[in-house]
């Protein structure tokens, strides 16, 4: 699971959960896989990203140096910054671990790089 996915997911499908975001991230195994850098894609994606949450995520899984704590103002023209953002969003992968709902403590396992967001019927209705 890439940190991009973590940035986009909430536990709001669980009944009575108000925000369900950000999910706390615990990683048991992390892998870095180089992937094609497309500057347009990254810069178009950034408005959708919660940078603070991405920063926290890098800190919590041992990649504290990956990105600066705040987003660069001129990121569209700042290739160095976009490359760092690309790395944090799409190259650092949690292979095994879990995400935890901030309101209920419900755990969502991550196994073989796939986040398991399945919930039981009685948790949603």
């Amino acid at each position: 699971m890439k940190l991009f996915t973590h940035n986009m997911l909430t536990s709001k499908m669980i009944k009575n959960v108000k925000v369900g975001y950000p999910l706390k991230l615990n990683a048991a195994e992390v892998k870095v896989t180089p992937s094609e850098f497309r500057s347009t894609y990254v810069s178009r994606m950034l408005p959708k990203i919660d940078w603070g949450v991405l920063y926290e995520a890098t800190q919590s899984i041992g990649h504290a140096e990956a990105i600066p704590s705040s987003i660069s103002d001129d990121y569209e023209k700042n290739e160095d910054f976009l490359r760092k953002a690309h790395h944090a969003l799409f190259e650092i992968e949690v292979i095994n671990g879990e995400m935890i709902c901030p309101e209920t403590g419900r755990k969502f396992p991550i196994k073989d790089g796939i986040p398991n967001m399945l919930v039981n019927e009685d948790e949603v209705n």
Binding site: N7, L9, T10, K12, M13, V17, M117, V124
Partner: peptide, 8 residues
């Protein structure tokens, strides 16, 4: 289970 969107 998408009566509430789990995505942002």
């Amino acid at each position: 289970h998408c009566s509430r969107n789990p995505f942002r």
